[in-house]
């Protein structure tokens, strides 16, 4: 809790002693953190260290084995919902809809109804909103293309636009740029940072790339095992070994943390 002493506001997310295990295999152990509204948290760590598991708990597709996660003081819903948007590394958009339809679908899903199709005035309003957000992410030239005609970066822009039109308060990003070229990745970083500031989102981003973790966001979590038993490595789960405020720090501290963590990328798979 002391990490967030800087701000007086009540935390948006409270993680209380969360464990996750599959049979004997402990993935996460004893997680205790709080996150305030508007933070941009990046989660790094080795493969299989539980960072994606934690993200899925926030998403609602995975439930903790022990402990609880509170969202605004309430237990976080155990299924995905419109308050938490998600962008996956792939399969995030609907292949049978054009770019415009993909984004308009968000508006259709928000109206209560059987089919999620829009008609008449709702439809033209949704089209307007969709075009506006596609403008914002730079996809206005590809409105009538199908996802398979888009490049990897454009697909992720589309996935982000789709998620944001749902006006989520939390945006979850599961290695969203892992498959992209470095140049395009930089563009995407800028896009995400701009949207985060503009829409005052709370963002959780899982990444393999430690640099990305440092460059983006206000807070960096490193997931790793706290204890090691060489005979039975599955008996101990991972926890958050570093919880660092980043972004606003000056260059020397940045360098110091960077040096501290330097060995990490070598055992990243």
């Amino acid at each position: 809790m002391s990490v967030n002493a800087i701000s007086e506001q009540t935390p948006m997310i409270e993680v209380n002693n969360v464990w996750k295990q599959y049979d004997d295999n402990v993935v996460l152990e004893g997680l205790n953190v709080t996150v305030n509204e508007g933070e941009f948290v990046t989660l790094v760590g080795t493969s299989g260290c539980g960072k994606s598991t934690f993200l899925n708990m926030l998403l609602g597709t995975v439930q903790p084995s022990k402990g609880e996660i509170l969202l605004n003081g309430q237990t976080i819903p155990s299924e995905p919902g419109p308050d938490r948007g998600i962008v996956f590394q792939q399969y995030s958009v609907f292949p049978h809809m054009t770019v415009l339809e993909n984004v308009m679908a968000t508006k259709g899903f928000q109206r209560k109804g059987m089919s999620g199709y829009l008609f008449g005035q709702n439809r033209s309003q949704a089209r307007k909103d969709a075009q506006q957000i596609l403008d914002q992410v730079g996809l206005n030239h590809a409105l009538n293309k199908y996802p398979h005609e888009l490049s990897g970066g454009m697909k992720q822009r589309l996935a982000i636009a789709q998620a944001l039109l749902g006006r989520p308060r939390i945006l979850l990003l599961d290695e969203p740029f892992g498959a992209l070229d470095p140049g395009i990745r930089a563009d995407m970083h800028e896009l995400v940072l701009n949207l985060w500031k503009e829409l005052k989102l709370t963002v959780f981003m899982v990444t393999h790339d430690l640099k990305e973790g440092f460059y983006l966001g206000t807070r960096l979590w490193v997931f790793d095992k706290l204890r090691h038993d060489p005979q039975a490595p599955h008996l101990y789960g991972a926890g958050i070994t570093y919880d660092l405020p980043v972004g606003k720090m000056d260059q020397s501290i940045y360098q110091q943390i960077d040096d501290n963590l330097r060995p990490l990328p070598e055992h990243v798979a």
Partner: peptide, 27 residues
Amino acid sequence: IPAEQIVKAQTLGANTSQIMIRVLLPQ
């Protein structure tokens, strides 16, 4: 059909019948 699409639709506010009619049926 990738589970990601079904999760994504839910995060956009879709209910079960909307997912079946709008996401699964056309595919």
